[in-house]
Each structure stands twice: as structure tokens, then as C-alpha cells.
Design a protein around this nucleic acid. Sequence first.
DNA 1: TACAATTTTTAGACAAATCTAAAAAAAATA
DNA 2: TATTTTTTTTAGATTTGTCTAAAAATTGTA
Lengths: 224, 224
Amino acid sequence: MATKKISQAEENYLKAIFKINEQEGKAAGNKAISQAMETSAASVTDMLRRLAKKELINYESHKGVTLTEKGDRIATNLIRKHRLWEVFLVDKLQFAWDEVHPIAEELEHIKSDKLVTRLDEFLGHPKFDPHGDPIPDADGNFAFRQQVLLSEVEIGKKGTLVGVQEHSKPFLQYLDSLELGLGTEVEILERYSYDGSMRLRINASKEVVLSQKVNQNLYIKLTE
Amino acid sequence: MATKKISQAEENYLKAIFKINEQEGKAAGNKAISQAMETSAASVTDMLRRLAKKELINYESHKGVTLTEKGDRIATNLIRKHRLWEVFLVDKLQFAWDEVHPIAEELEHIKSDKLVTRLDEFLGHPKFDPHGDPIPDADGNFAFRQQVLLSEVEIGKKGTLVGVQEHSKPFLQYLDSLELGLGTEVEILERYSYDGSMRLRINASKEVVLSQKVNQNLYIKLTE
DNA sequence: TACAATTTTTAGACAAATCTAAAAAAAATA
DNA sequence: TATTTTTTTTAGATTTGTCTAAAAATTGTA
Ligand SMILES: [Mn+2]
Ligand SMILES: [Mn+2]
Ligand SMILES: [Mn+2]
Ligand SMILES: [Mn+2]
């Protein structure tokens, strides 16, 4: 019954399964996992068997996997650690939001509950990470925030940029070049139905035009 | 020529070899390494072959090992990271000096030069860690400090506690219970030749008696 | 429903890091 | 120097995490 040791590789799989379950709203297939982990399908089958033996996932051949309660707790805690470290890197060490992910990918595996507690405290119990993603609390509860994709917002409305759907370096750097970041105020001026692009005023001054690809990846919190 | 990837296990061996070389002032034997790493002698032989193939150590069967320049650079950088993280844990997250070692043992393996640079800056370029051990700079140079073992100090002399030889949790906790920490002022009042114990005044007030075992593990910087 | 495409599993291998038991080499000692 | 003790290496296994190629199962489509 003693909780067996969980390797870094196993932890990464659990996190990947958690995210696929969340995004697709259903059991994660071998294919999706192998893509997320950038490994072969055969490796995934091997690992799923190991995780099932440790009772971290619910697994039946050819049926896709979900996390057990134990697996869910571990995955949620990893996400908590990952996002707290990202906040540390940006807020305390002045990293840019496009450079923190790979470092947090390593830091999330440091095993010390006290470290997480103290870090959370040190950072002032942040509720969202540098990309606007919610940081689960110690019990695994994610903060909820009312938000809409920019692509869904009507003309004339105003709001604040609170999150990004995409996390890639090129995307984040493109936003930087437009001076768009979390907290930026936006007002929708126009929408071009031809290609789904939109014209906005940002921070009550400059105007920018965003392609559909971009405005489908930005989360806005509407003003009132 | 491209620097091959170095595993966490390999890094830990390099650090152990560095420390044995330093402490014993000569090539590290298989036995000493296996004790430091808490592994079998056979595992050490295996690993030494791997490290030699990667040109990180100078190794000839039955002759003991030393680090190559490459190996030395890696070991020194690990020590730098380990000690910087210990400072972070104590100074920023309020950990006690007896709890940080195992966590730093994991944190030292995070691979990002920028992270080390930024952390060092954030901490104000500390020269010594929470145990008084010198933190090598980015070029691998260790700060030097004039210090003596308490057991060598003559009666009547005064000084400041600047370092500990032993790092074990029980030892550090015992010092805490005596209210002895880095920076504590000590004055040598008496030395009992029978068992090598010493009577001291600390911080110009309380008196304590320390056994030889203790006073052979404390480094003092003499006043003047 | 039958065939084709896709997904998943199996079989067989490999590198890394470890182990135990036994053999070989070096060091200590009588 | 000869013998004993200690250290180091070898031999042979094991676990973890990965791979490729091929087989089996499932899903999609004509
Ligand atoms: Mn990770
Ligand atoms: Mn993030
Ligand atoms: Mn370590
Ligand atoms: Mn230390």
C-alpha cells in the first residue's frame, strides 16, 4: 500500500494524460499520448501497463485511459508546481513568458511538499501563471475565471487580455512585438468576415489587426 | 566533439569524485566513491568506465581517478548551483540550514545557465552558502577565507563561527539547540586536555562546553 | 458487410544504472 | 617474503524506458 516511487517519466505521462482528458473531454488514446510525449506508440503501451500496475490510471486494452484519483492528485500537483515555478521565474528572476516553460518542465519534478508550500507563500499565493493559466491550490482546486476567446467577442466590446491558448515561443514573441501581454486592454473596432481577422485598439491608444489564427488563441475578460 | 549528454547519475559521481580529490588530496579510489554514492563497488567500476569514455575523468584500472578539465568544470558548476539553491531556500524561503541539502541535491541538476546567472543575481552574488561553504563563481573560482578549526584555537582568543565541517542534520540541530550558528561570536575560556572538550563564551554572554567531536567540526574566523 | 485505413499491441532489442557473487589484483602484515 | 586482508574488476542479472517491425484489433468507408 505504501506509495511506490514514481519516476520523472511516469510523472510526465500522467500530466500528458491529464491534459488530454481535459482538452478532449474523454479517455486518452495511445496515439494522442504518443504525440504529446513525442515517443513511439509501443513505448506508450509499455508505460500504460506500468502506470496501471501502480494504480495511477484506469486502463483496458484498446479502450483509452483516464486517471485514478491517485493519478489525478499527482498530475494536478505537478501542474501546480510547474505554474508556481513559472511565476517565480518571471516575477522574481525577470524571465520572459516565452522562456520559462522548459525550465519549469524540470523544476516541477523536485520532490518536496514544503518547498511548494513555501514557494507559494513567497510568491503571494498567485492564482494564475505567466500565461494566464490557473494554478491549482494545495487541494487541487483550479481557480475559475470568466473568459472568452477574442474571436467570439462582439464589435464595440472592451476587455482585458487574461490568457493565451497557444504557448509556443513564436506565438508569444509575436504578441510581444505587438505589445500585447496579459493585462493589455483591448477594444474591438472591427471584424472582417472574409478571413476572420479583427482590428482592435489596445491600451486605449495604438490600433492593431490580428489574424483569425491569433484571435482564436487569446482569452479576454470582458469589462462588465 | 559535441558535448554528449550527461545524466543526473553521472553528475553526482563527478561531484563525489571532486570532493574526494579535494578532501584526500589524491586520486579517488573505487571504495571511497562507492561509500560516497552508497552503491556497490561493481556499479562504481561500471560508471567509471562510462565517465572515462566521455573524457570526464582520468581512469586507469586499479589506479584511482581524477577529473579531467571538462569533468572539473561540470563538478564545480554543480557545486555552484547546489550552494546557490541552498542560499535561496534559507534566505528567501525561510528553510533551516539542516533541511536544505536534500532539496538542493535535486535542484542542482536543473539545466539552464541563464537560471544560475539570474538566481545568483537575485540572491546578491553570495560568496558562502548556509553552511559557510564557498560558492564558486561562474568561472569556477572559490572564495578563500582565513579560518581555523575551533579545536586548534588557543585559550583567550576570540572569533566568529563561519563554517561547519560536518553537515549532518543531527549535528546542525545540536548546534541550533546550543544557539550556535554562523556569525556567532565565540571566546575560548578553557580547554580540557583530558578529552579535548572546550568551554566557550558565546555572543559575549552564555557559556557552553563543547566536546572534541564538536569543536573539531567548527570553523572559526579569528578576530583581528 | 467487406475492404481499407488507422490505432494499438506484441515481439524482440538496446542503453543506462543498478545489483550479487566470484575472481583477480593490490596492499597490509606476520 | 609469504600469507592474509582489502580493494577492484568481471560475470551475469535485473529494472526502467526507450526503439523498430510486425501482428492484431478497431474504426471508417465503399
Ligand atoms: Mn516535466
Ligand atoms: Mn504556463
Ligand atoms: Mn544531486
Ligand atoms: Mn551546503
